[in-house]
Design a protein around this nucleic acid. Structure first.
Length: 640
DNA sequence: TCGCGGTAACTTTTT
DNA sequence: GTTACCGCGA
């Protein structure tokens, strides 16, 4: 039996035993919110709630899985029936299940950001060169389109709010927007935003589906509620419409995803949206020592948040956090490595240490230094394995097999052929999408010479790969008969890429259906290189992570590097009060990951960089902290 | 219409 | 150090 009263504090206990109706748990950093959720799931199952009536919405699938594992251990049996995962993954599952009810092809393909970019770039007209106005970069167009969807606004309003410089090309953007929407519809494609938009629409417009799902998910819990957007809040509302049993957990001080439409207003408005909601605050911090809390309280004190929390701890003593001035970037890397070695010598495991940074590329120099000292690390965030060209190529083949109308993937594949560019590819796709045809009929496409030869080889490889009754790795092997030569011709470093494709093959062995594999690779891609290999191996590693990917985690010792004006906060956020606030919260999230040791470092390099001038000196979020809260050192350990 | 070689511009963060 | 875009020759 679980001894709830001994293992939880009073507020946690209250949340765990909250029964029916809406409830908002405001949980400060390190206050054991995960613990509360885990115990609540366990408690409900013990009380006889069928596990498949529980829905646990989290930020990553990994955190859902971890929570369910822990809950399962508490009650000593597996909780595989609890539905848990991200909003996007849940939307995906439900949309496929009810696709017939809303006229959606059941084998739709999900586009990631890069796919969205290549789709949209097809519709970007080339502007006359003497034209003064220029279209935004493809990447920016994608951002704008995505903002429209996530905020439920039209182009005009989004431009007005965030991109006024592009007003002159509003008309062109409208055209791109419409063409993109039609393209997706015709090709059976859904991007990340469509998953949420269509899920919401389905719930709002289809009474039968709504009540069926709402009855199935009788108890809904949402983690990290401060990082949900309006669509997600509407989905929660619809899903709970029958029973109103919804418990959300969040911390408005840790809201760091507004760039993708998240708003802490969701957490602020929860009591209005769900009248009668109970509000519980978790304020005791179990993670950090008092000296670290002193600094984090200082960082967040000047922020404008509404749910004031007062974090306290019983761990009164500990090392004072340090702000370390380094001469150069490499000096910074050397400092971090020295300290890591010292801490390790004192008995702190590498797995209990992390280096955090604002953007993926900030750790490049450090990675080299760590390699030279043979310190094993695992990096999270930044560039992903599945974003590399050769993996995207492979995925494109597979998507065609799954959904033959996927014009985006077909295009990518056709461009591999010799003498085939955008124009010919378009002709071929048009040919193949005529009534009664698919890519199989490309055999009859009027082409000659090398083009025809290549086309035949491609169709043949696809046909072999499409043979039913093969395992997924077999399918991949068939495709490699065509793609292998392409790879070798295109890339000098093809042996390395071959090896990565082999890794992909290993991942594929875990899947029985192509549909699941494709959904997972886009909705839950491996978050680190080491994620692909043996997980036990990197359990002992040092962690390198973007702050965004470090959400919810904790370590004994934390280093925050590049805490320099211009980098953190980044130059381009400086003129916008709202995004500056978000940067501050980001620093807060980073600093509150630390249990015992916290080092904040910055190189004292000034001004010179390829792109624009930077201010220099330490980040404004920490530079004003008094010395008794934040120690000042140089990279040699001398106090300043 | 494709493919090559030059040059300009550019880098948050993630589902 | 890299990628995206332009103009040219084939």
């Amino acid at each position: 039996m679980i001894q709830y009263d001994k293992e939880l504090n009073e507020s946690q206990y209250e949340a765990v035993f909250f029964q029916d109706g809406p409830c908002l748990v405001i949980a400060g950093a390190g206050s054991g919110k995960t613990r509360a959720l885990v115990y609540r799931v366990a408690r409900m199952v013990e009380d006889g709630v069928p596990p498949n009536n529980i829905l646990l919405l989290t930020f990553t699938r990994r955190s859902a899985q971890e929570m369910l594992n822990r809950a399962g251990q508490l009650i000593d049996h597996e909780l595989s029936d609890v539905s848990g995962g991200t909003f996007h993954a849940t939307a995906n599952a439900c949309l496929r299940r009810y696709s017939h009810a809303i006229g959606l092809p059941p084998n739709f393909v999900i586009l990631d950001q890069a796919d969205m970019e290549s789709a949209i770039s097809q519709f970007k007209p080339s502007m006359p060169k003497e034209s003064k106005v220029r279209l935004p970069k493809t990447r920016t167009v994608v951002q704008i389109v995505s903002k429209c969807r996530n905020l439920s606004l039209n182009l005009h309003d989004v431009l007005k709010k965030e991109f006024p410089q592009f007003f002159p090309v509003l008309d062109q953007l409208e055209t791109i927007y419409d063409q993109y929407a039609r393209y997706k519809r015709d090709s059976g494609l859904l991007d990340y935003d469509d998953l949420l938009v269509m899920f919401k629409q389905m719930l709002e417009e289809n009474e039968a589906v709504r009540s069926e799902l709402s009855q199935r998910f009788r108890y809904i819990m949402v983690d990290e509620y401060q990082d949900t957007n309006l669509l997600q809040a509407a989905i929660v509302k619809q899903l709970s419409s029958v029973h109103n049993n919804v418990l959300v957990v969040g911390d408005d001080s840790q809201s760091i995803y507004s760039f993708r439409g998240a708003t802490f207003k969701n957490i602020m408005n929860f009591p209005q949206e769900f009248p009668g909601a109970k509000v519980i605050k978790l304020e005791q911090n179990y993670r950090s020592s008092q000296p670290i809390l002193n600094l984090t309280n200082q960082i967040i004190s000047s922020a404008q948040t509404k749910y004031t929390k007062c974090l306290y701890t019983t761990r009164k003593t500990g090392a004072r956090p340090a702000l370390v001035e380094c001469r150069t970037e490499n000096d910074q890397s050397q400092f971090v490595v020295r300290r890591i070695q010292e801490l390790k010598a004192q008995g702190l495991a590498l797995s209990e240490m992390a280096v955090l940074f604002r953007a993926g590329f900030h750790s490049f120099d450090l990675e080299v230094t760590l390699d030279s000292q043979a310190i094993p690390f695992t990096k999270y965030g930044g560039f992903k394995f599945v974003e590399s060209a050769h993996i995207k190529d492979i995925v494109s083949f597979l998507r065609i097999l799954e959904n033959s109308s996927d014009a985006l993937s077909l295009n990518r594949v056709l461009l591999m052929l010799d003498k085939v560019g955008p124009k010919k590819s378009r002709d071929m796709i048009n040919f193949a999408s005529e009534e009664g045809r698919t890519w199989r009929q490309l055999k009859d496409f009027p082409a000659k010479g090398a083009t025809r030869e290549g086309l035949l080889k491609l169709v043949e490889a696809l046909e072999t790969a499409a043979n039913p009754g093969q395992s997924l790795p077999d399918t991949l092997d068939s495709l490699m008969t065509f793609y292998g030569p392409v790879l070798e011709e295109r890339y000098d470093d093809f042996p390395k890429r071959y090896r990565e494709i082999e890794q992909l093959k290993t991942i594929m062995t875990r899947y029985r259906s192509l549909e699941h594999f494709l959904a997972d690779i886009t909705l839950d891609p491996p978050s680190s290189q080491a994620d692909l290999m043996d997980r036990r191996q990197n359990r002992a590693n040092l962690t390198l992570s973007t702050i965004h990917s470090a959400k919810g985690l904790e370590w004994g010792a934390v280093f925050i590097i590049w805490a320099q004006e211009g980098y953190f906060p980044p130059q381009k956020c400086l003129d916008n009060a709202e995004s500056l606030e978000e940067e501050r919260r980001l620093m807060y999230v980073a600093a509150t990951r630390a249990k015992d040791f916290l080092f904040i470092t910055y190189p004292d390099t000034s001004g010179h960089s390829f792109y624009g001038n930077f201010g220099s000196g330490p980040s404004r979020f920490v530079s004003r902290a008094p010395r008794d809260i934040l120690d000042r050192q140089d990279s040699r350990g001398r106090h300043l």
